[in-house]
Design a protein around this nucleic acid. Structure first.
Lengths: 136, 136
DNA sequence: ATTTTGTGCTTGCATTTTGCAAGTACAAAA
DNA sequence: TTTTGTACTTGCAAAATGCAAGCACAAAAT
């Protein structure tokens, strides 16, 4: 289990995903990465040992899940859980801040900007497409 | 200067504030901390060498500024710059996620939940009090 | 059927970051 | 003119990260 520095929700959230790589991995998942090699292909060049360890930790923390492959086939693919997808608004705010305050940053793809937690969590509304914000 | 892992705005934002302590320090400032000893008094118990180094880095990165004391008096106090205050929405999303997903977290004070970047940046609308969101 | 390729890791060791305890500088208060 | 408080610095231990290489195992190629 993670040990928390304090009962502060911010400090505690950072105790779970506040290392150098966790949020970068989750970002990759939001834009479509599902396999080990997908994560390695990201431009930040994470080391293989760290990726493997981080995937384990994120799974243990319940932020991602490995979809077990259909009987007797290849390895599973990774997907965000509801808990993990709940971090999408954090990533979107970080992206906004980065774009506004650091010159030369990429503009994230629309599927990132428009991402909603409910559309990314396993068991979520996959395949429903984007709707306008619900009134009320 | 900070070296960036990639031109991704998320990864780059994390290259600036993605260490274990920077966002915790900024959080303390949002809820009122302005001095070295204020930061040390936070429940997370940051080590003094790390605090000193982090304050320097945050100042060098333009996220905080030391207000020079009135002529010939004590040391200056720290305040968020516009750039630093721009991270407030990131902190608020982290706090929301922490509260929703980690049992037993504190509820942040109202002055944190209602904080707006413009009210915290130096040169911002200090002393104006909270207004409802502007229409349009 | 047996090399070859691709994917998903593990291992060993160097480097960097963080943590802990103690000490220092310097102004204000006693 | 000691004492106190604030703001650090220093030295060393521990943990996290980075790098290069190797390994297992399945699928594809020969």
């Amino acid at each position: 289990m993670t040990k928390f520095r304090s009962p502060c929700p911010i400090a505690s959230a950072l105790d779970i995903v506040g290392d150098k790589w966790s949020l970068v991995i989750i970002r990759s998942m939001v834009v479509g990465a599902t396999s080990y090699s997908d994560f390695l292909a990201a431009p930040e060049r994470i080391a293989t040992n760290i990726l493997a360890e981080r995937l384990q930790r994120l799974e243990a923390a319940g932020l991602i899940a490995q979809r077990r492959p259909r009987k007797g086939s290849i390895r599973g693919s990774y997907a965000l859980t509801t808990k993990g997808a709940g971090l999408i608004p954090v990533l979107q705010e970080l992206a906004r801040w980065g774009q506004e305050n650091i010159p030369g940053r990429w503009t994230p793809p629309l599927r990132f900007q428009d991402a909603r937690p409910a559309d990314h969590a396993i068991g979520g509304a996959a395949g429903e497409g984007l709707r306008p914000a619900e009134p009320g």
